[in-house]
Design a protein around this nucleic acid. Structure first.
Lengths: 245, 245
DNA sequence: CCTGATGCGTGCGTTGCCGCACATATAATC
DNA sequence: GATTATATGTGCGGCAACGCACGCATCAGG
């Protein structure tokens, strides 16, 4: 690991943190810290994956971009996991765009190094697959939520997913960007946000949303959030949710 | 493999068919043929997975069941793949229900046997992971489609996904069942079906829908179908689509 | 052949979200 | 502190899908 990196930071990523000592020592040598600014596109649809990313404080959004330019988020990756699962799953591209939803740090690892460690079949292999399974649940539940729930509920879910992956209660994010993630109108997000503000669950001012009442949000959200969270707990042995952290 | 089974049938499943000779010989000994009637529930949400299933002529629907009883399909498994990926991904349960959408045959394999072969890290391991990646794309695109496309487009997609996994052009399926899969009203399916009938793309009579104009359906469907199909092609080296079969 | 069950067609009022237009409010720049 | 860009608030017409209710067609079993 390059001199500038703080080895302590690797522990902010739950996958890396969960590795046994020997594997961790080997993996950490292959990691390179990177800073990821808001809006940066890590992968474009169809790109060859040269690196995978283990976020520490950054949050990455997986988006599908339609032919007509419309977008919809299919999942989100933060300190709970890794971006680039398609690599070890055997494709070397994905049909999705990966964009930084919240600026922050991550560690990147080359495709070659990742595959070398993955093929050893140790805890690393196991953890990556379990994480993938958890991500599948997240994507599945996104599908369900898109089908059956209101914009307001989906906004709650989105806020909680983001909040879980942040240190702060403040999300730097415009209604317009959120609308792109959720695949709804910007006005729809504004309306939904207003309802949450009226219930004193969040604060929403120009470019930032602040979580005021985490528990309240959890009662307002649809069951989808809990389903996903329980799966993360079960599969990765640790809650992502900050409620039970 | 038990005496009753026809070894030839294993080739109807594309994953099994793609195995190299030595691995195939080993795997096929562990397979047991089963007949799967319409509506049978193979896994309930949270069930421990004792078997995985390699469909040959059956089609299995992966459903999420909401607390209020509402359902939505997140993906479909047929002769293109295998039901029970959560097993080798490291969970031993899934939060979804798996139900037979179209009656037919499959081969089942015990969890123990599957894991033994999977852990050898051969082509079997590789194929299962690549298939999982393709399934992830299918689920992702379901999420996108649920968000952005009309019931009519989704019905087209659903019809094509089913048609691809069948020998026949006739789908034994009521509007009511389809509405449960798509997570929409029964009347919505009726309306959408009528529009497709008016365009001479399908026939729809009490309990069966028949594909009349496969190409026409493909022009009517949203891009989601092609995205998924291209990924299956790319990852598994063979089209699922019957257009290019 | 009758009867009940099942599947499909249709109408009606309601709702949630859309697209658009535009007003206002808050930064950022000079 | 005036100007410009960006972010949010609001209103309006339109539409797709919803929930509900009911009628009609088809099928299975006595």
């Amino acid at each position: 690991m390059p001199k500038t990196a703080n080895p302590q930071d690797t522990f902010k990523n739950f996958l890396l943190k969960s590795l046994p000592k020997d594997e961790f020592e080997r993996v950490v040598k292959k990691l390179e810290p990177v800073n990821l600014p808001l809006g940066k596109v890590l992968y474009e649809s169809g790109d060859k994956l040269n690196y995978v990313y283990f976020p520490t404080t950054a949050i990455i959004s997986l988006l599908y971009v339609m032919e007509n330019g419309g977008t919809a988020e299919i999942g989100v990756v933060g300190n709970d996991g890794v971006l680039g699962i398609a690599l070890f799953m055997g494709g070397d591209t994905t049909p999705n765009r990966a964009v930084i939803q919240s600026a922050g740090g991550a560690f990147k690892m080359s495709a070659k190094d990742l595959m070398a460690e993955f093929s050893l079949g140790g805890k690393f292999h196991n953890l990556l697959l379990r994480y993938t399974q958890a991500l599948i649940t997240q994507i599945s539940q996104t599908a369900v939520c898109n089908r059956l729930h209101s914009v307001e509920q989906q906004l709650c879910r989105w806020l909680l997913l983001s909040h879980d992956r942040l240190d702060s209660d403040k999300l730097v994010m415009t209604h317009d960007l959120i609308s792109n993630m959720l695949g709804v109108r910007r006005e729809g997000v504004t309306l939904a946000a207003q309802k949450l503000v009226a219930r004193n669950l969040i604060k929403s001012v120009r470019g930032t949303m602040t979580v005021l009442d985490r528990q309240g949000l959890e009662t307002a959200v649809c069951e989808c959030y809990k389903v996903v969270n329980d799966e993360y707990n079960r599969l990765l042995g640790r809650g992502i949710s900050r409620t039970f952290a």
